[in-house]
Amino acid sequence: MSRYRPPSQPAAPYITPEGRDKLMTELRHISDTVRPEVTKALSEAAAEGDRSENAEYIYRKKQLREIDSRIRYLVKRLEVVKAVNQKPTDQSRIFFGAWVELEDLDGGGIERYRLVGADEIDLERGWISIDSPMAKALLKKQEGDDVIVARPKGEACFEISRVSYDGFQ
């Protein structure tokens, strides 16, 4: 049996302006504050002597590699993403950035989601990726439409009760 997995589809290149600002803030913080602190701690650990048995030196080298990896990722991602800061002309339909309120027709509960970019996912806030099965099922639908979503536990049926681009209060 082979371990080969075909490459996954790249994430949609969309992001909200708030999400882009958050990534840029993280990049500045890591570059301007965190990396210099770790570099200083690494040079202090290196000055202590034998590096092969120096746990602090080994740890700081690993930490610096992880920081540099995150910086490379953020720089490349910020080059690719496109901030969507305009609302669609037809705000009755669901597109990127929409807040959606759904009524679960099987269980009767209410669920709220916002369709955002892959870098902004926050399940506690109800922010789901535009690439998720739920978001794909919701795209271009409007209030009153029924949506069937394939979930790991089986299919679920929802009715769209509200759509907004300004959030829900």
Rank of each mutant, 00 (worst) to 15 (best):
C157P: 00
I160R: 04
E26Y: 09
Y165G: 01
T33D: 14
A98G: 03
K76R: 13
P17H: 00
G117D: 01
L102R: 01
T89R: 13
Q63R: 15
R114I: 05
L78G: 04
L105Y: 10
I110L: 09
R77S: 08
D166G: 02
D32V: 06
S92P: 01
V163S: 04
E143G: 07
I94W: 09
E48N: 09
N54G: 09
V80I: 11
R93I: 11
G154Y: 10
G19A: 11
K76V: 00
D50S: 11
D166A: 12
E111Y: 12
S2M: 03
A137D: 00
I110G: 03
S2K: 07
L23M: 15
L42V: 11
P133K: 15
F95M: 13
K76T: 00
V100N: 01
D131K: 04
W99E: 08
D145E: 13
F168Y: 12
K140I: 08
R125N: 08
L115E: 09
A41P: 00
T33P: 00
F158N: 05
D32L: 14
D119F: 01
E79W: 01
D146S: 14
L23T: 08
Q169Y: 13
I58P: 00
Q91S: 08
L139G: 02
V38T: 12
P10L: 11
V38I: 15
T16P: 00
A156K: 11
R5M: 05
D104G: 07
Y113C: 11
V149I: 14
I30H: 03
L27I: 08
P133D: 11
V149Y: 12
V84K: 12
S164T: 06
Y73S: 05
A47E: 13
D50N: 14
M134W: 06
M1N: 12
L102A: 04
F168A: 04
D50W: 04
D166R: 03
E120V: 04
G109H: 13
R93Y: 07
D122L: 07
G154Q: 07
A98K: 07
L123W: 05
I71Y: 08
L27Q: 02
K140T: 15
A135I: 08
L64Q: 09
A12R: 11
Y14P: 00
K76Q: 13
D106N: 12
P13N: 12
R5W: 05
G109C: 06
V80F: 03
E124F: 06
I30Y: 07
E124Q: 14
K22G: 06
A137E: 02
A98T: 07
G167K: 07
R60P: 00
G154K: 06
A11L: 05
E48S: 09
G109N: 13
T25Q: 13
S129L: 02
S43T: 14
D50M: 03
I15P: 04
S132C: 08
